[in-house]
Amino acid sequence: AAGSPLPPLPAAFKAVQHHLKTATDHEKRDPVIAYYCRLYSMQTAMAIDSKSNDCRGFLIKLMDLLEQMKTQLQGTDAITNEVVGQAHVENYALRLFSFADNNDRAGTFNKTVVKSFYTASLLFDVLQVFGEISEDLLKHRKYARWKSAYIHDCLRKGETPI
């Protein structure tokens, strides 16, 4: 999978813009994460609009890409078995969350911490492809999203987060 195979994102699909960016960021590092971010984006975007020309065109390309990834990753348990996939995405999200949380509690505030909190919150969204997410994960998601916005804002204003 070379280059960017997807057409420009239709405005109607803005809600999955960051999930798709996370997929691209993980293409080489962790293709399982990339795959499930795209699967989540596909499901979410289909529910938004699968009829208008530009949206349908985008969805077809995204589906092509998912099918291509699935073929390429046939030997990977986390792709062929969604239970394994769910555990993979959940562990990854919780590891990112812990990394950000430990830094936050140690008083380390930087863009990496913001991004880790934010990416963790996006991956908690992605877990919805496997079904409803637990109360505990919902709390993690809410906290991660709030923290990333708060620290980002503090860094922007030059203030020290409390």
Partner: peptide
């Protein structure tokens, strides 16, 4: 009854994507 054909085309297109999605997750 002449307008029945149009919405069914749109839903067929949606169905095709839904089917591909279901197949993707079954493999």
């Amino acid at each position: 009854t002449s307008t029945i054909g149009t919405p069914s085309t749109a839903s067929e297109q949606q169905d095709e994507l839904s089917q591909r999605l279901a197949q993707l997750r079954q493999m």
